[in-house]
Write a protein that binds this DNA or RNA. Structure first.
Lengths: 112, 112
DNA sequence: CTTAATGCTACAATATTTGTAGCAAAGTTA
DNA sequence: TAACTTTGCTACAAATATTGTAGCATTAAG
């Protein structure tokens, strides 16, 4: 899969608008999950693999490379961690946690 | 793919935590894109297809069904539109628009 | 009647993801 | 220093997901 670099064509879009690149990136399996799981602190490869419950090493590595190139994560001695940009992105999406709970609740009510 | 219903096991997670269901859902190709493109108003099937630039009808229909079941969108006479929950979710993710611009900018600077 | 647009479905081709195995390098322990 | 362990990751084939094109049934004009 080609890297969704803002400014160039990305999967599913020919305009190359930054939002399209971002939606392409975040729409890839596990991309959101990795960012989500990394926000609780740096992790080594195997540690991150466990936080993600069920990701295959192949894909984890692929995603890590992409996220690194796009500057959302970086690798230090402590392992992989969110870059300043990554932290910033996490802050944007962090309300999803609370939102998902109320969503789950609503769906549950509904099914009564 | 099985529907990521909060409370039950979802792709990539065995815990069934709402956030995992949500991350699974949003991590599917085009799910975020559909929500994003629907926020500007209701759209018919073919119209939505065009807003999404390059989605195949097969997948569009699959995603629409999922999003409908999970109550993020609904279909009315005007076509498909975000449900109240969907609007709410959109509001959570809408800062991604601005974020993506500054991200694109930062990447550009970087490559100088 | 025709013709045109719409909401899809069929289905084969292509691309992505998983899962298991395992290897090389870097510690640890004895 | 000679085993072990652990870690970061690659190989690769099987399983799944996505695309793309064609086209069909319905409804709506003309």
């Amino acid at each position: 899969m080609t890297l969704p670099l803002p400014g160039s064509q990305v999967r599913g879009s020919i305009t190359g608008k930054p939002i399209m690149a971002l939606l392409d990136l975040l729409g890839r399996t596990w991309a959101l999950g990795i960012i989500w799981n990394l926000h609780s602190g740096p992790a080594t490869f195997r540690e991150l693999q466990q936080r993600c419950e069920k990701i295959s090493p192949t894909l984890l590595n692929t995603r890590l490379k992409e996220l690194k190139t796009l500057q959302l994560i970086e690798s230090q001695e402590a392992g992989y961690q969110l870059s300043p940009q990554g932290v910033d992105l996490y802050e944007v999406i962090s309300p999803l946690g609370a939102w998902s709970s109320q969503w789950a609740q609503a769906l549950k009510e509904e099914r009564k």
